[in-house]
């Protein structure tokens, strides 16, 4: 029943120069550990840019009013310190009884791109990469297949044989991006807007893979915006300057729309193609359009249920 070999196996083998070998091994292990510490020393740079308070910060939905105030004060001070700009970061909450939807008149949009530019400025996007939440696709007339389109068109618009399809976050009622997030850093609020807690996102970019509308952006580098160009009217869940390494997206300018204003892309549109409003308001313009116009929903077959519509005259 019992094995016969155990007793000899139970102790360390007697090696003549055991002590010397142990010392040599120890020395190499120390050398290796030292080399490792040197190799990862650039991390100290990264640590300098992030505070202990930021590291310990809880999820947005779990912050008490006091904690929120502290976080916002810290973020404002950081913007001052790192960008030299005095900004106000509010915590705009949904207005009860509101469900925001957006519509674009494709018969009118002429591809001038003013919305793209307005978004870039309003939302404090990185200047270098010319980031924006909106892409406009120039499409040949006679198709709705985006394969035929181009986002890199140039020259005078509109061209006779083309029409223009602006795409941004569709604020889906069944958002795949929210489902896939492993840490609940992104969610849908009561007024329909899908938001991101930039201080909770771990930067795995699964949401970017899941979104069928190319609506999400990742901060591949620390955004750079000159102090005088920073939009100081900010909100925690929308256009405050984002940290590096996290995902962001269009929020229907909630720092404006939750205060009764219109999104920046709509205000900038010279053609009047954009209509925004509260679909729960029976007298709203948007409600009338959706009830009376021919409406097209982008990738409707995917079942994402967008709160974003295209219509034709």
């Amino acid at each position: 029943m019992t094995t016969t070999e155990p007793s000899t196996k139970r102790s360390l083998p007697i090696v003549e120069n055991f002590g010397r070998r142990a010392a040599v091994k120890g020395a190499f292990a120390t050398l290796g550990a030292g080399a490792f510490v040197a190799a990862i020393s650039p991390l100290r740079q990264a640590a300098k840019n992030s505070s202990a308070a930021e590291f310990m910060q809880q999820h947005y939905t779990e912050l008490s009013a006091d904690q929120k105030a502290d976080v916002i004060a810290r973020l404002e001070a950081e913007t001052k310190e790192q960008y030299g700009a005095d900004v106000t970061i509010a915590d705009d909450r949904p207005i009860p009884g509101t469900k925001f939807v957006y519509a674009i008149n494709l018969s009118v949009c002429n591809g001038n791109g003013k919305c793209v530019e307005a978004c870039h400025k309003e939302n404090n996007h990185d200047r270098d990469t010319n980031q924006s939440y909106i892409r406009v696709i120039e499409m040949p007339k006679g198709t709705m297949d985006m394969e035929q389109g181009s986002t890199t068109y140039s020259g005078a618009v509109p061209k006779d044989d083309k029409f223009y399809l602006p795409v941004q976050c569709q604020q889906c009622d069944e958002p795949p991006c929210v489902d896939v997030c492993p840490v609940k850093a992104t969610w849908k609020e009561e007024d329909g807007i899908v938001v991101v807690d930039y201080n909770w996102c771990i930067g795995c970019r699964y949401c970017e893979a899941a979104c069928p509308y190319h609506a999400r952006r990742f901060n591949w580098k620390k955004p750079e915006v000159p102090a005088e160009e920073i939009n100081p009217n900010q909100s925690y869940l929308s256009n405050r300057v984002r940290p590096v390494g996290v995902v962001e997206k269009c929020t229907y300018c909630l720092h404006r729309t939750r205060r009764g204003k219109l999104p920046a892309c709509l205000e900038a549109c010279p053609t009047g193609a954009r209509v925004f409003g509260n679909i729960l308001d029976k007298d709203s313009n948007i409600r009338w359009i959706l009830e009376n116009k021919r409406v097209y929903i982008l990738k409707e077959e995917l079942g994402t249920k967008p709160a974003f519509f295209y219509y034709f005259d």
């Binding site: 840490v183 996102c201 795995c204």
Partner: peptide
């Protein structure tokens, strides 16, 4: 691949927020 490896703890059940069972990543 993480943009914010310093926030790895957000994924730990208990102290973080674990989007299970909806997210396949969890």
């Amino acid at each position: 691949d993480l943009g914010r490896p310093d926030r790895f703890w957000h994924m730990l059940p208990g102290i973080g927020k674990f989007n299970w069972p909806i997210s396949m990543l969890t």
